[in-house]
Amino acid sequence: MIRVLVVDDDALVRTLLTTILTAQDLTVVAQAADGDEVVPAVQAHHPDVVLLDLHMPRMSGLDALAALRELPSPPGVIALTSFGTDETVVAAVRAGASGFLAKDADPAQIAEAVRRVADGDGALGRAAAGSLLRHVAADPDRGRREEAQRALEVLTDAELEVAAYVPAGLSNQAIGELTYRSDSTVKAHLSRAMAKLGVTTRSQLAVIVDRAGLRPG
C-alpha cells in the first residue's frame, strides 16, 4: 500500500487529486493546505510520497521541501505546479524533489509518477525533463563538467553503467533490462551511487551524470 500526502492551497485541487489517486488504488493518508503544514503532516501520517504544490501563500513548496530534507527519513516528493518554467523545475530538483509534474497531467501519469517515486525512481514529466536538460546544456560554467567527471570517479563500473541511464528517466526495470540486471540490483547500485555523491534524489544524480557527459554503452 502506497501512502500519499496531498498538499495544495486549493481545496478543489486537493479533492481532485485525492479522487484520482484513490481510483488508482493509492491511499491518501492526509491533506495539507499550505507548506507550513507539511512537516507536521509527514510526522503524523508517515506517507511514502508527497504531492506538493510549489506555489502556496504562507510557505512555498520549495521551502517545505527544504524542511522535509531535514527529517531523518523524508518521503519522496513530487512537485506540482500549474505553470512550470525551466527555473522552477531546476529549483525543485535542487531542493530535493524526486519528480515534477504539471497539475494538468492525466490521472494515469500522476499515479505512475507516485508509484515510481515510492519505488525509489525519479518521475519527471517530458516537459520537466526537457527543462532540466536545457539548463544543463546552457550552463556557461564549463568547469562544472570537469567537477562532475571528478565526482563520478568514486563510482564503480557497475554503478556508472546503471547511472548512465538515469538522465533518460528510465525506471529500474527498464535499466535492468538494458544492463541484464534485476530491478533490485539496479536499485542497490543507484542507492550506493547517490550516497557516494551526496545526493538524495535521482533527479540530482541525473544532473551530475548529464553534466559529466556520461552516456550509456
Results as ranks from 00 to 15, higher is better:
24 Q>Y: 07
166 V>C: 12
61 G>D: 03
138 A>N: 15
67 A>K: 04
154 V>S: 14
92 A>F: 06
56 M>R: 05
210 D>M: 09
29 V>R: 00
101 L>E: 13
41 A>G: 02
144 R>G: 10
149 Q>A: 08
160 L>S: 06
18 T>D: 15
73 S>H: 13
12 L>W: 01
55 H>P: 00
17 L>T: 02
104 D>M: 05
109 Q>G: 06
137 A>E: 13
213 G>P: 03
62 L>R: 03
181 R>D: 00
193 A>S: 11
187 K>W: 12
2 I>V: 14
105 A>M: 03
149 Q>C: 07
100 F>L: 04
87 E>A: 15
42 V>W: 01
143 G>I: 05
212 A>T: 02
121 D>Q: 15
184 S>F: 12
8 D>Y: 01
4 V>W: 01
48 D>W: 03
48 D>A: 07
139 D>R: 00
144 R>F: 00
15 T>W: 11
127 A>T: 13
68 L>R: 12
109 Q>T: 15
66 A>H: 15
130 G>I: 00
204 Q>N: 11
61 G>H: 05
152 L>Y: 02
192 R>G: 15
89 V>S: 09
198 G>H: 14
7 V>Q: 02
36 D>W: 10
53 D>F: 03
13 V>T: 10
49 V>N: 00
102 A>N: 13
99 G>E: 11
24 Q>V: 01
39 V>C: 01
52 L>W: 00
13 V>A: 14
69 R>A: 14
143 G>C: 07
175 I>T: 11
60 S>N: 01
112 E>L: 15
10 D>L: 07
26 L>C: 03
66 A>V: 09
111 A>T: 06
214 L>F: 14
40 P>H: 00
82 S>K: 09
57 P>R: 07
134 R>T: 14
157 D>F: 05
118 A>G: 06
3 R>P: 03
51 L>F: 10
179 T>R: 13
39 V>R: 00
215 R>L: 12
9 D>N: 05
125 G>A: 15
155 L>S: 05
181 R>G: 02
120 G>N: 06
82 S>N: 12
159 E>Y: 11
56 M>Y: 11
207 V>S: 06
40 P>E: 01
187 K>V: 04
81 T>R: 11
193 A>N: 10
119 D>Q: 12
175 I>R: 07
206 A>W: 14
110 I>E: 04
128 A>M: 12
2 I>E: 02
143 G>Y: 04
133 L>H: 13
25 D>W: 08
56 M>H: 02
37 E>T: 01
4 V>I: 07
29 V>D: 01
143 G>V: 06
64 A>D: 03
37 E>A: 09
88 T>H: 13
199 V>E: 11
96 G>S: 05
13 V>M: 09
110 I>D: 09
1 M>S: 14
68 L>T: 04
10 D>S: 12
29 V>W: 00
110 I>S: 11
165 Y>T: 10
176 G>A: 10
1 M>G: 15
21 L>D: 01
172 N>K: 09
